[in-house]
Simulated assay, not measured.
Amino acid sequence: MTLLPKFSASLLHPRFWPTWFGMGLLWLVVQLPYPVIYRLGYGIGHLAKRVMKRRVKIAERNLELCFPQMRAEERQHMVAKNFESVGMGVLETGMAWFWSDRRMARWMDVSGFEYVRDVQAQGRGILLIGVHFLTLEMGARMFGMNEPGIGVYRPNDNPVIDLVQTWGRMRSNKSMLDRKDLKGMIRALKAGEVVWYAPDHDYGPRASVFAPFFAVEQAASTSGTWMLARMSQAAIVPFVPRRKPDAKGYELIMLEPEYSPPLDDAETTAAWMNKVVERCIMLAPEQYMWLHRRFKTRPEGVPSRY
């Protein structure tokens, strides 16, 4: 397993004081009643939309590419709702890291977890497909409260954030693996573990093949799904963490397992996986991370979409 960060006196250096202050402020804010957090998060989202002009344009472009039939007014409404989720996502990170299990349980519902138990009864590992919703941290915590697994992450460049996020995520995980550690993931899956995996972002040309994604015919899609599923023989189980409207909490939705995904080649698997991701996104499209440059990697000689 990955060697996890530990506290050291060097993290108390004055250059890290602003980060510690930010973490402390986040902890303090998420002690408020959830309806207050909800309103505050949406307010942060409205402010973010006014400030993050470049990300607004990226979100608009992604929606235009994925849903070319969507009317301009619908797209603008979707972007506005999406940035409300951006604001909530900041506070939900603190909720996922700092809330007690008891408080989490009060605001969450879970459906379809029998699918996970069915796979485990067969002694198979689970490649848990968690796409990049803005509720991502809440989803990992909710799932881990029912079944702790192996988290996959990118270590943060700021060592204080890396320490706090790892501590927070370990509240609902057995261990953590660097997202580049494919061998570690395969070993865990073969041992019957649950390994969280997000196959929906553009991870660059070296680790990608091109496959359709919504209306985009050639979207850079990770080849990691093909390698992990082929070498581990794990079942693939998607899940969706969805925020309910009007401060009514969250629902964790488990989808049906796939025991025999198409594994002919990386392109075939990526195209199939993208369809799974699309289905997940459409369960809460306004809560997806549209501000990521999903289509930045292009085939050689093809101009940028941004």
Rank of each mutant, 00 (worst) to 15 (best):
W107V: 01
V240P: 01
M88G: 02
S232M: 03
P212R: 04
K57V: 05
L128F: 11
M170Q: 12
V119Y: 06
P18Q: 12
E74T: 12
Y115E: 10
N158W: 09
V276M: 10
K180E: 13
V164A: 05
I281M: 07
C66I: 02
F143D: 06
V277Q: 00
V195N: 02
V119T: 10
G43A: 11
Y288P: 01
R243N: 07
A211C: 12
A211E: 00
M88I: 00
M95K: 03
S100C: 09
N156A: 13
A229I: 03
H292K: 03
S111P: 02
R117D: 15
T166C: 12
P33M: 04
H132F: 13
V51D: 08
L263S: 08
E300P: 08
G224F: 00
V160E: 03
V276F: 04
G184Y: 06
R102W: 07
E84L: 03
P261M: 08
M104Q: 04
K81L: 14
I44D: 00
E84Y: 02
W20C: 08
L4S: 11
L127N: 07
E73W: 10
D246E: 14
P257Q: 08
F113N: 05
K183W: 04
V110T: 10
Y288H: 03
M23W: 13
Q165T: 14
P257F: 07
D246H: 11
Q69M: 06
R305M: 15
V160F: 04
I58M: 03
S232G: 04
A229D: 08
R55I: 07
A229L: 14
L252I: 06
M52L: 15
R124N: 15
F239S: 01
A72T: 12
F295V: 02
D200V: 11
R298K: 09
W196Y: 09
W290Q: 06
R124F: 12
G192Y: 01
G139K: 02
R230D: 04
S111N: 10
G43I: 03
K180D: 11
K244T: 06
M142T: 05
R71W: 11
S175L: 13
F16S: 06
M227C: 04
V194L: 13
Q122C: 10
P212W: 05
I129M: 14
D181T: 09
P5S: 12
D162I: 08
A266H: 03
I253V: 14
A9E: 13
K174D: 11
M231I: 02
E74A: 15
R279T: 14
V29N: 01
S232L: 07
T2H: 08
S10Q: 15
M142A: 13
R71Y: 05
E92G: 01
D162V: 07
R305P: 06
F67T: 05
V51P: 10
R54N: 11
